[in-house]
Nucleic acid binder design. Sequence first.
DNA 1: GGGTGCATGTAATGGGTTACATGATTCT
DNA 2: AGAATCATGTAACCCATTACATGCACCC
Lengths: 195, 195
Amino acid sequence: MQALLGLLTIEPMSGYDLGQMVRASIGHIWSESYGQIYPSLKQLAADGLVSRKTEKHKGRPDRHIYSITKKGREQLAKWLEVPPQAEVPRNEMLLKLFFGAQVPAAILIRNVERMAEEHRALLEKFKRVERDEIDQHAEYPDAPFWKMAARYGQIEMEAHLRWAEETLDELRKLAGKQKRSGQSSGQGRKEKGEE
Amino acid sequence: MQALLGLLTIEPMSGYDLGQMVRASIGHIWSESYGQIYPSLKQLAADGLVSRKTEKHKGRPDRHIYSITKKGREQLAKWLEVPPQAEVPRNEMLLKLFFGAQVPAAILIRNVERMAEEHRALLEKFKRVERDEIDQHAEYPDAPFWKMAARYGQIEMEAHLRWAEETLDELRKLAGKQKRSGQSSGQGRKEKGEE
DNA sequence: GGGTGCATGTAATGGGTTACATGATTCT
DNA sequence: AGAATCATGTAACCCATTACATGCACCC
């Protein structure tokens, strides 16, 4: 919702464009699906935060181009000033690792390796974003902030990769122990009252 | 849902206990509210993944103690083996920074500082978790995995703090420029067709 | 006496995704 | 020929949070 308003400060766009933009620019920070974008734009227009113009095209459907209004900018600024609150934590990979005793270590190793690969790719991407996209828009007033976001991604990915290294070492030690003792997984304790 | 099943491998518990446990142990990895825990337990019991025993108490309501069943353990293991998929990105702080040009830099500085303070506190907490909680359960089969999760938190928080330092430097430079030029915020470009 | 903690649960509400519906154009 | 892209929108559904309802016990 507010993200859409923010993207419209860059330039006027259609709902479809916004969908592309969300994926291309803030895709690693925030996500919005079309099922949400179109109704949101309707609402924003009803509230007078965006204005809408229709471009006619022969054959294909009309493009509705939305522009942020003065009121919309004020609203956005107000929202930007509200201190962001911590996100609800949802880290499936870590959750699964937390219960790792229930499963052979080899599986955990595979999962951590997979994550590391993904994050290595993301790290490269964030580096590219910082160089290419931002150096190109050097005189843009938004450029410094885009760069900060890209740096965040880089630093975080580097941290995750360091963690993955350390963790894989540990897991490989555990996997070795399991193999030597022929242990399959967390069948160690038998709970009473289990049925 | 699966998190509850996982916590029940540690020991049999009531819905209320699970709520406490979620906050205390996996609170920074995953979250579940009571409005979700109770219906989930009902479902898990209906599917035969947990069994339920009732403890009677004079005066206060009965405690329903849930234990994971053999079927539940199998189900859990199956879930743990599924490669975790990347989370939907939702970083409100970064999103607001991304649109930082719309607002005076002083506000962004305040937000980043606030985040840094929170993460500094969290870092200390993760360090404590690693030392206290985990060293106490040293012989637990879960201990190594809990430690890995705590290390993840530490490494990530350290990364965020490094980023915050770097970013605050940048922002202070920008704030200085704004002050000298008497600029309030992103009123630089006037869009055409704005109304 | 009033707040907090124990203890369970339901209902309303919100936020979001996926799937569906439609249909022309352009790329392979 | 068939897949992907452009383009908009709605409906069904899922997951989750918050608020509500209840009521005793304990502490200040």
